[in-house]
Design a binder for these strands. Structure first.
Length: 973
RNA sequence: GGGCGUAUAGCUCAGCGGGAGAGCAUCGGCCUUACAAGCCGAGGGUCGCAGGUUCAAACCCUGCUGCGCCCACCA
């Protein structure tokens, strides 16, 4: 039963062995739905035909989405699968609606992530990037990018992504580099980018600065050490507490609150810093010291703590850097401690403090240290010159865009988060001490900057490290200047730092369209229609795109922002390789067996294989997409349960099988066509020829068309999918197809006469539902659609067929209501059969259908054949309330029609009693509830009239039904 | 500390002012000529707890509890 997973993506070059059979005699699809087979067939067809390409010269209105660019060397995960599903859904929907739909794809160079991967690869060869030097290293990264860069793209294609691949971009390709430089230089000239020495977040493992957003803080168990600093004049001491005793060498003051009575006398005195010869002052600072915390006295280390840095500035304290960029102690500490790692130093310092008697006590303490998101290393605040963006200025218009509704957010609650952050935005540190990325276009004149540029050559390094002091004056320009405007010098050093990855991503909506050139693409497709992405990058990416987009294009980069949910495992835990709860989309799509899955993959998916020791059957991209659509309700996280995916694959199988049924029948009648043309779609039948069931299903179909369209427009994708699911399964398959068989298989000439129209309706409803379903499940719908009989001028593919529109002529509530009566009758009889254990094979010789309502008798009469077939009844006798009932008999009530089935040898008396008791109890309960409402004068006077009316109707039919059921019970004795 | 989300059937989730719904799981019956990945029946819920608004509350308001997320501070 299990397939080995084709874990490689070469399958996309599969032959098209069965495209359109238009003109052939036979229309048919395989007996079983095999998603893997179906899905490899159509992607090449679509791309060859160029359907994904959007034309910037088109007259059609534009619809644009730019892809959130995945990491170029990344691997497909569920997050990708979800965004592809939604973005492709929107794109295909709009394309069918007649928009010039552009979904612009590309990848991100992902600075740190990619650099780390290549470094790891180098490490396997026993090399480091420092040994091979920047130039050689970058060659390696480009080679790695070329090798791996297409993987993620091919994987997006497996999911059916209808991106315009002709426009694929990469954040470091030539055009985008040009855009980055243009933006950087402009912002510098406008004073919105500057270089400044400040305390920054230093990641000593990745050896780069990080922005505030790249820092995580979580509770950790640590210690609080209480230290005693003695007063120099020998009159006493002061106790402080710290979580970082190793930084005491950098202390330049002890702060107390000015109102703190305990210390008023000693403010201004000096204390001796333990383990050193230094003396530092006791200062009063209301912001630095909290009287209620500990002893109310705090050590101030301006060079290694953000608060202390500010305190130092307020009080003019010196800054002593005691920890370096390697996270080791600098030469500014006593000799004994120099060169120690900060961790080692802490140990030794604590020992020495204990020995000197300055360590008062230790307590367990939960605190939240800052860690690098990337490396997990403890962030060391260091004073370093870096490049900054003045975010406040850029944020203002972005805030306004959301306030005025120029850009909307769905779900709306994210607006609050957005405003909150934007209003409190701090300057953005954009320089990174990495090699992989956009090198900053700033140049230093070697003559002018003499003494401020330091070359530090460490052993084993190919090139020296470059340290450029804050005093060095940069020249920011698109290209390296030839001559220094100050001294005329001709030797320049380019800033070695690169830009934060998010800097280039921030330009994505316009840099990908050819900016700074004013291209036709930009004119046609900017601003984009929807930004569809995950909310966890709202600050990293969305906010920055808005800031840059508005600043450089004058217009907000997108009209709507739709935030999708996060995909978690079925327990609601975020997926991660280390937790082993990863569900790889490809394992679901192609199926998998533990024996054929590589070890590392199996480890990441440990939980999956625990639950499914025999592996998983291939589900297909369509099923995965449909599942994600159903599960990702607005504003909710997705807990991915494989059982549900299997359920939706079953749904697609149902679509498949229903299509087979339809195709089997149209085959017999070669002149059946559904009238789809490039300009639209026309029903191939007229209202006057329709049966009751035909009219019903068409009424329903048209309502479904409206509902699905509206729900997609409102970004309620799960509602749209649910609507299709329910209609296709519970109405089209369960009822219409079953009713159609009565006509199609009938020997009665009068009935069979309806056959032609029935077949037309069957194929028309199917064809329409396929078009509605196409954006959700593109492959299976194309496969089936290609095999439907169509006229010669029909489009060549479902994906360029027109989106269904409501045809009011077929909205027919009255006929629909009549079919609902039929359904109620059949359900009631089936209930009797089921409860009374009448074998399905056993025919009921006769049933009485009794009602005083002539219209209802007419329904039964006209649907006699259907009722008989669907209920396996041989004969129906019509009558009214006066008609004598045979005893004993079973009685059901449907829509006020009494259905009487003589017992004969069919029915068990006790079972029938139970059934009636249950039915009576239910009707009684409902009736009481309705009567209670109507007996309340407030309800009658205040509730909406139509609500009162339905309640009255309920009481009326409830009473009638109850009476009939009670009589039936009494007859049983 | 501030903000946000969420709690509905055994499980995963829809529904968000007018009789509690789906899929899976469970029980009973069916290989009925599209489908056993199916069909026909059935069982199963004081919609987290406590108040309030309303003729009417799973749905709106308040409080509480559990779970989760974000931001800020932390000696």
């Amino acid at each position: 039963m299990l397939n080995c997973a084709p874990l490689f993506w070469g399958i996309l070059i599969a032959p098209r062995n069965r495209i359109c059979k238009r003109g052939a005699d036979i229309f048919m699809i395989d007996k079983t739905y095999n998603p893997t087979e179906v899905e490899k067939r159509w992607y090449p067809f679509w791309t060859e035909k160029g359907y994904f390409h959007a034309d910037e010269h088109s007259k059609k209105p534009p619809f644009t989405i730019v892809i959130p660019p995945p990491n170029v060397t990344g691997k497909l995960h569920m997050g990708h699968a979800l965004f592809v599903t939604i973005q492709d859904l929107l794109t295909r929907f709009k394309r069918m609606q007649g928009f010039e739909a552009l979904w612009l794809p590309g990848t991100d160079h992902a600075g740190i992530a990619t650099q780390v991967m290549v470094e790891r690869q180098l490490a396997k060869e026993g090399k480091t990037r420092l040994e091979i030097g920047r130039e050689e290293f970058l060659k390696r990264v480009w080679a790695w990018k070329r090798e791996k860069g297409s993987n993620i793209i091919e994987q997006l294609k497996i999911l059916g992504a209808s991106c315009d691949w002709e426009r694929e971009r990469f954040t470091m390709d030539e055009g985008l580099c040009k855009a980055v430089i243009e933006v950087f230089v402009k912002l510098y000239e406008e004073g919105l980018i500057y270089r400044d020495e400040r305390l920054v977040n230093w990641d000593p493992v990745a050896k780069t600065v990080l922005s505030d957003l790249e820092i995580d803080q979580e509770n950790e168990n640590g210690h609080l050490w209480h230290l005693r600093y003695d007063l120099v004049d020998g009159t006493g001491s002061i106790e402080i507490s710290t979580t970082r005793p190793e930084t005491l060498f950098g202390d330049t003051a002890v702060a107390v609150h000015p109102d703190d009575e305990r210390y008023k006398a000693i403010v201004g005195k000096k204390v001796k810093l333990p383990l050193t010869d230094r003396e530092i002052p006791i200062i009063a600072d209301a912001q630095a010291a909290d009287m209620a915390f500990g002893t109310g006295a705090v050590k101030i280390t301006p060079a290694h703590d953000f608060n202390d840095f500010e305190t130092g500035k307020r009080n003019n304290l010196p800054r002593i850097q005691v920890i370096g960029i390697d996270a080791c102690m600098t030469d500014n500490v006593p000799e004994k401690y120099r060169g120690m790692t900060r961790e080692k130093c802490r140990e030794v310092v604590l020992e020495d403090l204990a020995a000197s008697g300055n360590l008062v006590r230790v307590e367990d303490y939960v605190h939240m240290p800052s860690r690098s998101q990337r490396s997990g290393a403890l962030v060391e605040p260091l004073l370093l010159p870096q490049w900054w963006v003045n975010a406040k200025v850029l944020a203002e218009p972005a805030i306004k865009a959301v306030e005025t509704g120029a850009t909307t957010m769905t779900p709306k609650l994210w607006e609050k988060t957005f405003f909150n952050w934007m209003h409190n935005i701090r300057d953005w540190c954009i320089s990174r001490q990495l090699w992989w990325g956009h090198q900053i276009p700033a140049y230093y004149c070697e003559d002018c900057c003499k003494g401020h540029i330091h070359y530090i050559m460490n052993p084993g390094q190919k090139d020296p490290d470059l340290r450029i002091d804050a005093q060095a004056k940069p020249i920011v320009a698109k290209t390296c200047p030839e001559k220094c405007p100050v001294c005329g010098g001709t030797h320049f050093i380019q800033e070695p730092d690169v830009l934060d990855t998010w800097f280039s991503s921030g330009l994505w909506p316009f840099s990908t369209m050819g900016w700074p050139e004013n291209t036709d693409t930009l004119k046609k497709f900017y601003p984009t229609s929807v930004m569809e992405t995950a909310a966890d990058i709202i600050f990293f990416w969305v906010a920055r795109m808005m800031m840059f987009g508005i600043h450089f294009m004058g217009v907000t980069p997108f009209k709507d922002i739709y935030f999708h949910a996060l995909v978690r495992d079925k327990q609601g835990v975020k997926m991660s390789k280390t937790k082993g709860n990863v569900i790889d989309p490809l394992l679901l799509i192609y199926g998998c067996h533990p024996d054929t899955v590589p070890e590392d993959e199996k480890k990441a998916s440990r939980q999956l294989f625990d639950d499914y020791p025999n592996g998983i059957d291939p589900q297909g991209s369509d099923a995965l997409r449909f599942s994600l659509t159903m599960l990702a309700a607005q504003g909710r996280d997705v807990r991915l349960d494989i059982k549900r995916i299997e359920g939706y694959r079953a749904f697609l199988n149902k679509v498949w099988q229903a299509s087979r049924f339809v195709l089997m029948n149209v085959e017999k009648e070669k002149d059946i066509y559904s009238y789809i043309t490039k300009d639209g779609c026309k029903e191939p039948f007229e209202a006057k020829d329709l049966s009751m069931a035909d009219a019903w299903i068409l009424d329903r179909l048209n309502r479904v068309v409206k509902e699905v369209t509206d729900q997609i427009e409102a970004y309620n994708f799960n509602e749209a999918a649910q609507c299709i699911y329910d209609f296709l399964w519970n109405e089209y398959c369960d009822w219409y197809i079953e009713l159609s068989k009565v006509v199609l298989y009938s020997n009665d000439e009068a009935v069979a006469k309806q056959g032609h129209t029935t077949r037309l309706v069957l194929v028309h409803v199917l064809e329409t539902i396929l078009r509605l379903l196409h954006p959700f499940a593109p492959f299976i719908t194309e496969e089936i659609w290609q095999n439907l009989p169509k006229t010669a001028d029909a489009p060549e593919s479902i994906m360029i067929a027109p989106w269904p529109v409501v045809n009011e002529a077929f909205l027919n509530e009255k006929e629909a209501e009549r079919t609902r009566t039929l359904i109620a009758i059949v359900s009631a009889v089936r209930n009797i059969r089921g409860e009374a254990n009448i074998a399905p094979s056993k025919a009921i010789p006769q049933m009485l259908a009794l009602t005083d309502d002539a219209a209802k008798r007419e329904i039964v009469e006209s649907m006699r054949a259907s009722i008989c077939t669907l209920c396996k009844i041989e004969n129906i006798v019509l009558g009214d309330s006066q008609t004598a009932k045979p005893a004993p008999c079973a009685i059901g009530v449907a829509d006020n029609i009494e259905l009487v089935i003589p017992f004969a040898d069919l029915i068990d008396l006790a079972a029938e009693r139970d059934r009636l008791a249950k039915a009576i109890a239910k009707v009684t309960k409902d009736l009481e509830a309705s009567e209670k409402k109507l007996n309340n004068p407030n309800f009658v006077s205040r509730a909406k009239p139509e609500v009162v009316e339905t309640e009255r109707a309920r009481v009326a039919s409830g009473r009638a039904e109850l009476e009939k059921l009670t009589k039936a019970r009494d007859m049983l004795g």
